[in-house]
Design a protein around this nucleic acid. Structure first.
Lengths: 224, 224
DNA sequence: ACGCTATCGCGTACGGTGTACGCTGTCAAG
DNA sequence: CTTGACAGCGTACACCGTACGCGATAGCGT
């Protein structure tokens, strides 16, 4: 009796796939994907490592589950609205979600076992474009450019640590430091004349490219 | 003497950073990035694991070196040519290189320690755009959209195993298999009506999106 | 209230990983 | 011939994912 009481008080509740996945995401958010090991995760949950394997078949399965929860955080496009505003909103939502879960960036599109939220997302995007009158070839074009750009931008942006307080200047300097001055004049000019200017935020580039692509799609789809 | 003869014949030559990096790339090309361990790499080179550390400080340093060699394989844009043809050729070259070294896709843009080939590449691209008359803000826009798209496309395409002989139909079926029929009607329609059509190759989407972006840039830069 | 059974959490153990540290043998320069 | 630099190596440690099988427990039909 005493024993039962202790065991049910010490641990907030029984383990569950949901709880495991949530803890894993929190851990990866905080310490990066590399810091996520089954043992550490078990420790966080106050549980022995092997206990996790009741709720997850694999580490691969764990990651699959994490990614699908991340997909669930993305705003779905409505199924009848204006395609352009919907696609724009979705793109920005993806970007926000990826900013929250930087570790997910390389993993979301390369899943071999997509989860339900992932498929639901694809379904909603395709449905939105079809409802707007895109034929299938055009859907493929649009989806391909948009997702390529969205994930690619997140990927290239991820490089910069860009923690608040460590400005671009310092990063650029440490990168160029091991090389002779004037070895890369254009790059240096770019950094000093543009990227280091106060007020410049590389993240702002996102919407520029996004709108450029949306413009291009709009022009092709309804040629004026 | 006999010993010296043997030792210099058994091993093709002395180890060197170059040889280590080349072998690492070959190994990753063949077996994937996950299969690349210091021990396996040493084995391939006919050498004890710790011998590698004379030529590479870290595994991180090893990867840095590998990535820079990969950057070296990309065709640099000329510095005086037509920006649009140069950017197009460069984009296609990046894509080809990434197809050869699929393991590199998530790693190239997130380097904290870029190598000389990496910086040279950046320098050449910026130089080409500047020579074409782009101002710095426009250079930033163009480079951001283009590289975002190029790497993002490679990333999303990487998902599909798409080995010759395993057509899209089979992949799609295994992915949708665990879910009830008609759960994702738009996705299913897309797959059956478009992606599975004979002759469809997702890779062809690349140039469509690329030209869409180049068109957009051309329109902005020189508004007709 | 009882026992059965499915499930949960765990302990142990194995083969893999990156790499710190210090030894040995080779080779070029003095 | 001596000496110093340096390439390659052996050992060892901490960590990883997870196969396997055991005990405790919880929810059920009776």
């Amino acid at each position: 009796m005493a024993i039962r009481a202790i065991s049910s008080v010490d641990r907030p509740s029984r383990l569950s796939r949901e709880r495991v996945l949530r803890a894993a995401i929190a851990h990866a958010d905080a310490g990066g994907f590399a810091a996520l090991s089954m043992r550490k995760l078990a420790e966080v949950l106050g549980v022995a490592p092997m206990a996790l394997y009741r709720h997850v078949t694999d580490k691969e399965d764990l990651v699959d589950g994490m990614i699908d929860l991340v997909f669930g955080e993305i705003d779905l496009p409505s199924s009848g609205g204006d395609w352009r505003t919907d696609m724009r909103r979705r793109a920005i939502s993806v970007r926000e979600v990826l900013a929250r879960h930087r570790w997910a960036i390389g993993l979301m599109e390369s899943r071999i076992h997509p989860g339900p939220a992932n498929l639901r997302h694809h379904d909603a995007v395709i449905g939105n474009l079809r409802a707007a009158g895109f034929d299938m070839a055009m859907v493929a074009h649009a989806y391909s450019v948009l997702d390529g750009y969205i994930y690619g931008f997140a990927l290239t942006k991820m490089s910069l640590p860009s923690e608040r307080g460590v400005p671009v200047a310092e990063i650029a300097e440490t990168m160029l430091q091991p090389f002779p001055v004037n070895e890369y004049p254009n790059l240096e000019a770019f950094v000093t004349e543009h990227a280091m200017k106060p007020g410049y935020d590389y993240g702002d580039e996102f919407e520029y490219g996004l709108d450029l692509i949306l413009d291009g799609l709009a022009r092709v789809w309804r040629p004026a």
